[in-house]
């Protein structure tokens, strides 16, 4: 694959409720060691967790920016309560284009000033992307379940409008969000009285079928895939199709190594097959999937390197 200096590697917002110490240490290492261009921060899943994040957010932002990384602040996916509306409105008030909107409430609050469209916003097609661009979107992250062919058309439309266009290439897929907290429910608690039990599952709470087959992960109100999406073999195709940004989602593995593997492929320093071996080592036992990209069941792993 040709050397690619244009494509940006990003780190999506942390979906889990990690302790403050763990989060600080994680982002310190990301800032200093990970070959990433852009980092999304902010609580996207649960408004109850937000106060924990906010305390050390300024220090984390400062550290990342000092290391030359662009920081984007992401908004909540589900907005129902007053505090969630306020959090969304406060974010939309910020005087920076680098905010990512994940709920239509944010579009209302932002009122056509520049912003990014997050993966929860259902940008499935050209008309939607075109309309979003007309309302101030500078960048759009496509839905994870969009097949590669549609992705190429969407990316081309976005590029034609001067938008950045991004897709998740690594990590658990977000499959559903709900008003209800399943983490709390599994522990016999309500959402209001959850005691932040989600902090115990740094990579999500595993669910197995009654045949002991791992299938999903619960993360508060979010349901995630058991598999990690891995589009490393498809990276060349994605870039040829016009994707400008590739998103890695933070998981409980060595994310510096994960970023380095993807970067080495973008740089043409390693071929995807060799890089895949390194990624496998970094991720241990977890299964990889790329079914969504190939228009099949999302959990599937279609084993082939897509020719460029």
């Amino acid at each position: 694959m040709a050397v690619d200096k244009m494509t940006k590697l990003t780190l999506g917002p942390l979906a889990y409720h990690w302790s403050s110490d763990r989060r600080r240490d994680f982002y310190a290492r990301i800032a200093d060691e990970a070959p990433l261009d852009e980092v999304y921060l902010g609580e996207v899943i649960c408004s109850k967790r937000a106060p924990f994040q906010e305390a050390d957010l300024p220090a984390i932002i400062e550290r990342l920016e000092r290391a030359g990384k662009t920081v984007i602040l992401s908004s909540l996916a589900e907005v129902m309560l007053k505090r969630e509306r306020k959090a969304t409105a406060d974010l939309a008030e910020l005087d920076t284009p680098e905010i990512e909107i994940n709920n239509a409430a944010g579009l209302f609050d932002r009122s056509s000033r520049p912003h990014r469209i997050g993966p929860f916003m259902n940008a499935y097609n050209e008309a939607t992307i075109g309309w979003m661009a007309g309302k101030g979107a500078t960048h759009v992250t496509l839905p994870t379940e969009l097949p590669g062919e549609a992705m190429a058309i969407a990316a081309s439309a976005a590029r034609g409008l001067g938008l950045g266009v991004e897709v998740q290439v690594f990590g658990r897929a977000s499959l559903a969000v709900s008003a209800r907290c399943y983490h709390a429910r599994a522990h016999g608690r309500t959402k209001d009285n959850c005691l932040f039990v989600c902090e115990d599952d740094a990579d999500g709470m595993p669910l197995c079928t009654t045949d002991d087959r791992p299938i999903l992960r619960v993360n508060g109100i979010q349901t995630q895939s058991e598999t990690y999406i891995n589009l490393l073999p498809e990276t060349g195709r994605l870039i040829a199709d016009g994707l400008t940004h590739l998103r890695l989602m933070p998981q409980s593995v060595d994310m510096v190594e994960v970023a380095s593997v993807f970067r080495s492929v973008l740089d043409g320093a390693r071929d995807p097959l060799e890089a895949e071996t390194a990624l496998r080592e970094a991720c241990g036992e977890v299964r990889f999937s790329n079914g969504f990209y190939h228009g099949q069941a999302g959990y599937r792993r279609i084993a082939n390197v897509v020719p460029v």
């Binding site: 379940e145 559903a176 228009g295 099949q296």
Partner: peptide, 21 residues
């Protein structure tokens, strides 16, 4: 539906058939 509708890919994950698409 217990999940937020229009934001659910559970069926898509297990079968490749998507409620949204």
């Amino acid at each position: 539906c217990v999940m937020a509708e229009g934001r659910c890919s559970l069926s898509s994950y297990a079968t490749g058939k998507s409620p949204n698409m």
